[in-house]
Amino acid sequence: MKTILTNKHISIETRKRALQCYIEPVLMYGCEAWTISKQIQNKLEATEMWFLRCMLRIPWTAKKTNERVLNEANKRRSL
C-alpha cells in the first residue's frame, strides 16, 4: 500500500479513501474489546499522523505541527 499512499499522481482524496478503507479497519480490528487508555489513544493518534505525513511526503524532521499537517490534508482526527 505504500506505493499507492505515496504516489503523487493519485489525488490526496483518493489516497485518504484508500487509507480509510484498507488500512484503518486492519488497525482497528478487535477494538470493541479494547480498553482505550490514554497510552493507546496516543499511539493510535501517532499512527494516524504517521500515515498522513507519509502521504503528504512530510519528513518526520520537518518542524510542522500535527494541526498543520491535518489542515494540509483537509482531515480531522478519525481514529
Rank of each mutant, 00 (worst) to 15 (best):
V69W: 06
I23Y: 09
I12C: 08
K63V: 10
M1N: 13
I36Y: 05
R17A: 12
K75I: 09
R57A: 08
I10D: 03
E48S: 01
L79P: 02
W60Y: 08
E45F: 04
I10Y: 02
P59Y: 11
V69R: 02
I36D: 00
R76C: 01
N42M: 05
N66Q: 03
L56W: 06
A18K: 10
A33S: 12
C31W: 09
F51M: 14
P25T: 04
I40W: 01
R15Y: 02
W34Q: 03
T47C: 13
R68M: 08
G30C: 09
R77Y: 09
I40T: 10
S78F: 12
M49W: 07
M49V: 04
L56D: 05
K75R: 15
A18F: 11
T65L: 05
T35R: 10
A46D: 11
A73F: 05
A73G: 05
L56H: 06
V26P: 01
T65W: 00
N7R: 04
L44K: 07
W50R: 07
N66M: 05
A33P: 00
T61Q: 11
I23V: 15
I58C: 01
T14V: 14
L19I: 05
H9E: 15
I23G: 07
K63G: 02
G30Q: 07
C31D: 11
T35A: 06
S11G: 11
K64Y: 06
T61C: 09
A73S: 02
M1G: 14
A62W: 12
L70K: 02
L79M: 11
S11A: 05
E48P: 01
W60H: 12
L52E: 00
S78Q: 15
H9D: 15
C31V: 10
K8G: 03
A46R: 13
I4E: 11
C31K: 14
M49F: 08
L52W: 00
T6I: 04
F51V: 08
C21Q: 14
L27G: 07
E24K: 07
K38M: 00
N74D: 15
P25G: 04
K16Q: 13
L70E: 09
K2F: 11
C31E: 12
E67K: 10
G30I: 03
T3N: 15
T65D: 04
P59N: 11
K38W: 00
L70C: 05
E13S: 12
E13F: 09
C21A: 15
I58L: 01
L44Y: 04
N71M: 12
R76E: 13
Q20K: 13
Y22D: 06
I40V: 08
K38Y: 02
N74A: 14
S37P: 01
K43P: 00
Y29F: 15
L52Y: 09
P59E: 08
C54Y: 04
E45I: 05
K2T: 10
Q20R: 13
P59L: 06
N71E: 15
H9R: 14
A18C: 09
K43R: 14
L27R: 14
Y22C: 15
I12V: 12
W34C: 08
S78P: 02
E72C: 09
L79C: 11
L56F: 07
K2H: 13
Y22S: 13
E45W: 05
K64R: 09
R76P: 01
M49T: 04
K8D: 10
M55R: 00
T65H: 02
T3R: 15
T35Y: 06
L44H: 06
K16D: 06
E32W: 09
